[in-house]
Design a binder for these strands. Structure first.
Lengths: 246, 246
DNA sequence: CGGTCCTTGTGAACGAACGCACAAAGTCGC
DNA sequence: GCGACTTTGTGCGTTCGTTCACAAGGACCG
């Protein structure tokens, strides 16, 4: 019991403290749960869910335990209920208007990407510094000039901004987004952004991902075979050998 | 966890055991070092480099120490030399032909993305299951039908594959890539991939990134102003408040 | 209504990663 | 050639995350 207050979490000073590592996995669980719900599954065990997510069942249970005690011993978790609880924890029960800056190849792809709209996110405005792109219609949104950024962001109440500009422009765009009131930034530009306290930045860097894979390739190629059948656990760097039934 | 178990500590520098967390940062250091080299800087201290990368200097020094002792006490690191050493460690001294499967919006953007070509990676072939896309010319590459995948991958010796298909097709494509000899996969589809041992998978999921940001927004919005201190420190989840001079 | 079986929730051990602080090692000025 | 100064490399304690193993809790059967 003691559901009202999620205090008794596995950790200590866990008033409102879901570990970062857990938060990063919740969206994955959520996606799987939604798929299960859609196919009519009403309950799921930690073992099944963990297998689908590619994690150990104990980890999954601990992750979910940070949200509260939403399972039933001997049975498992109610899929619909868990979907709701995880969504709520992630803040997906509300609508998040997002703005995208930089409508080049990547920006176009992002604006068209269905995955955004599907889960509470809504592409609300597009911006580009290039006058030739301004006015262009992308997915029924007109590309706006940078001058419009502050007022439009303010009016929309957009709290999340996506940067898809060249690296050189990223910091400037970031500053303008922050000045306009954006507090969370998803950065696709290969640049390290400096932001004031309280602003969150996550970066997605395609080049870095490839380089990490290259490292993996080289490590496996250079030294002779690694006979040791050490069952390399599922890890962070690269996920090697996953045999779940998706 | 990747594949090998390392000796322990930075002490055994040369050993084949660079921690995952370090490997994930090396490409970032490398990018900064290249920028420094380009602007004519010949030496750099750990303090400066760390500031540019947004990490603590001690962490940077420890990261570099895994590669060897390439610094000079009292002076710093030779930029050109370090570029070479990091590149070498990451396996970027050789050419990596990559193949992209799924030439939709995202696939297009990836094929055109300059960041790939710049660092030892070369887009070598494009594939799509849709007959209407086959034959299309993207960045002087003709989109090939899936049937060509195995022979072309074999001929190119491509070890890295990029999946930019819808989620439903991802596992099938993954299986075909692996069967064709690809051992490292960069997956943009929102799906958990099952792969045999020895194959590395990294995933980039735009929707998940946004959801993590939404969590951050909600956490900061719900409980009034957070005094300080108690907040989860600057961790991995989101980078908050970075004041470096990029 | 009691017993048995199943699955959750979690305490505790383990391990990886981080940050501090400092000795070692080299440079530069004189 | 020597001493002061600078910056690296790293031992160590701390924090964070993962895994194990098991007791507690509940469903279901007879």
């Amino acid at each position: 019991m003691t559901v009202s207050r999620r205090a008794t979490g596995p950790g200590r000073a866990r008033g409102r403290g879901v570990p970062d590592a857990t938060v990063a996995r919740l969206p994955l669980y959520l996606r799987i749960l939604r798929a299960l719900a859609e196919q009519g599954t009403s309950t799921v065990s930690s073992e099944e869910l963990a297998a689908a997510a590619g994690v150990k069942s104990a980890k999954l249970r601990k992750d979910l335990s940070y949200l509260g005690s939403y399972g039933t011993r001997g049975v498992g978790y109610d899929v619909a209920y868990l979907v709701y609880q995880v969504s709520r924890e992630l803040g997906l029960t509300q609508d998040w208007p997002i703005v995208i800056v930089g409508i080049g190849n990547l920006g176009h792809a992002l604006a068209n990407y269905g995955g955004f709209a599907s889960r509470g996110f809504r592409v609300a405005a597009l911006f580009d510094a290039d006058p030739r792109r301004v006015g262009e219609l992308v997915e029924d949104h007109e590309v706006l000039p940078m001058g419009e950024l502050a007022p439009v962001v303010g009016e929309l109440g957009a709290a999340i901004g996506v940067i898809a500009t060249p690296a050189g422009a990223a910091q400037g765009v970031c500053d303008r987004l922050v000045a306009a009131g954006v507090r969370s930034i998803l950065n696709f530009a290969p640049a390290v952004l400096a932001v004031p306290d309280g602003v969150a930045v996550r970066k997605v860097d395609l080049s870095i991902e490839l380089q990490i894979l290259a490292f993996h390739e080289q490590r496996n190629a250079v030294p002779g075979p690694v006979p040791d059948g050490a069952g390399s656990g599922p890890g962070e760097l690269v996920q090697t050998g996953r045999r779940s039934r998706a």
